[in-house]
Design a protein around this nucleic acid. Structure first.
Lengths: 123, 123
DNA sequence: TAAGTGTATTAAGATTCTTAGTACACTTAT
DNA sequence: ATAAGTGTACTAAGAATCTTAATACACTTA
């Protein structure tokens, strides 16, 4: 479910948090579903528990999960949060589109690119 | 022409290289136009010349500029390179679109977002 | 010759990421 | 009550990267 890409520039804790975030927002992980324990996931990924702890800390700070001491970390599905997250993702798409446009990519090429993505993901 | 954003996570040398790259690809800087000297730009931005040197090194490695010892760094407009760069930018847009789609943003929202960007940039 | 240019080198400081080890409090099952 | 599993907190250290600093050298132009 979780993979670390050592070619990725982002730190490990950020990759892990991002991955869970995607699983939660996309609905693959349901409300109140339990995340792997800090120690379990650390063993599974062969990394330090502190790194997992940091990832979970970020997720909790951002409101994607909640913690019950002694029990574990669980998915917190907050529709408002999910809506804001989608807005954020669209904002990043907007920014990337702007960069493309400023560097000479034209409108139609952008639309074709997005259409292509939509076609391939929805299949 | 060049600004450093200290809130930006990217290192300074990368911001500078990226900025020049955009100016070159967009055509704002023309072929054989001279870039500011390492020392001049360092003073102007109040940073170390080594950092500028690193940025210019990246640009040269990537083929966006060429160097004449004792004279300076100059824009190298290579249409093939520019084409590849545009493809790279579109690839990033594609990836961002894919992320949006996988997290529940629908096709129409994506298209609207891109249309909005196109509308605002072209004005 | 002097001033301006790129290039190369070494050293050090700062920050961030990651690991390591330890300790403590809580929950659950036995 | 006990043991095992859970989250949390803390300190320390290593590694990597970014940035600054200070020099030195070679080239070009005026």
């Amino acid at each position: 479910m979780i993979l670390i890409d050592y070619n990725d520039k982002r730190p490990i804790y950020e990759q892990i948090a991002g991955r869970f975030q995607a699983l939660i927002i996309s609905g693959v992980m349901e409300a109140d579903e339990k995340l792997p324990s800090v120690r379990t996931l650390a063993v599974e990924l062969s990394i330090n528990p502190n790194t997992i702890q940091r990832a979970y800390g970020e997720l909790e700070k951002d409101g994607f999960i909640y913690t019950v001491k002694g029990k574990g970390n669980f998915v917190k599905r907050d529709e408002g949060l999910i809506h804001r997250q989608k807005e954020r993702l669209l904002g990043e798409l907007y920014e990337q589109a702007r960069i493309c446009l400023m560097q000479g990519v034209n409108r139609q090429e952008l639309l074709d690119c997005v259409e292509k993505a939509a076609g391939e993901v929805l299949v």
